[in-house]
């Protein structure tokens, strides 16, 4: 169990809803993941091509903690506007503040992210910023009052796993608020790694929705996250340079 603002969560997998092929696969993947929190985006409606599928339209968001993102925003002002739209529609339990500062790498803009968080906190939102793995920024956002910090593993959609485990560990060790590793996870191994480092949760999307079998991958991720959490709690052995026998050295006289 962990808590983000007023929300108590059992499941440590948070799920994004982008890029699912169809609503049936999406619904089954959501179920297999065991998630309690869904992320989604705000866009203009297509006026001319009404046949465009929108798998999200079939999801009953009321059954989940709603966690819209501000994806598409490049300034604090745009991010705040997206949050207000989601809040107006009654689907903004928590807001994922995502302000992209670089089109090629999709890395977040730390200054605009900070400003957006400040405004949204003043307006009473439960605020969770998506950030790079910057240790100082994480601390300053926590001091500002955000409810969770969401550093990336690596750039969005790359599936490269954790690029800088050292920074992530520094962030986790200093944080008094939940740390949710967001973006760049490719496989359950990566998700497990994040949890072993002590992350409170992982936010996934492409790694599940673009897998060959999203439903099976959702289950694999759930298990990987659970395994990583248990391992973190159990406390792994230190890494050593020299071998150390696991069988007794005594009692070998019969050989």
């Amino acid at each position: 169990m962990f808590r983000i603002g007023p929300f108590e969560l059992k499941a440590r997998l948070l799920l994004g809803t982008g890029k699912f092929e169809d609503e049936e696969i999406q619904a089954r993947a959501i179920e297999a993941s065991g998630t309690e929190v869904l992320t989604f985006a705000v866009r203009r409606m297509s006026l001319y091509d009404r046949g465009l599928p929108n798998p999200l339209a079939d999801v009953n968001l009321k059954n989940f903690v709603t966690f819209p993102n501000t994806a598409g925003a490049k300034t604090a002002e745009e991010a705040v506007r997206i949050a207000e739209i989601a809040d107006h529609a009654g689907v903004c339990d928590m807001i994922k503040v995502e302000v992209i500062g670089d089109d090629k790498t999709l890395l977040p803009d730390p200054l605009e992210t900070y400003e957006a968080c400040r405004t949204l906190l003043e307006r009473g939102y439960t605020v969770c910023p998506y950030t790079s793995d910057d240790v100082v920024l994480a601390r300053k956002l926590e001091e500002l009052g955000v409810h969770a910090i969401m550093p990336l593993a690596s750039p969005i959609g790359t599936g490269r796993g954790i690029s800088n485990p050292l920074n992530l560990r520094y962030i986790i060790e200093q944080a008094e608020i939940p740390v949710i590793v967001d973006a760049g996870i490719g496989s359950p191994r990566d998700a497990c790694h994040a949890m072993e480092l002590g992350a409170d949760a992982v936010l996934l999307n492409t790694a599940i929705s673009a897998a060959k079998d999203p439903v099976k991958m959702a289950k694999a991720m759930k298990l990987g996250i659970e395994a990583g959490r248990l391992s973190h709690e159990a406390g792994r052995i230190p890494v050593k340079y020299t071998a150390e026998a696991s069988s007794p050295a005594d009692g070998l006289g019969f050989l």
């Binding site: 705000v42 409606m45 968001l61 999307n205």
Partner: peptide
């Protein structure tokens, strides 16, 4: 008028 909707996203 802006006509907006919620779509899949992560």
């Amino acid at each position: 008028l802006e006509l907006l909707e919620f779509v899949g996203g992560g």
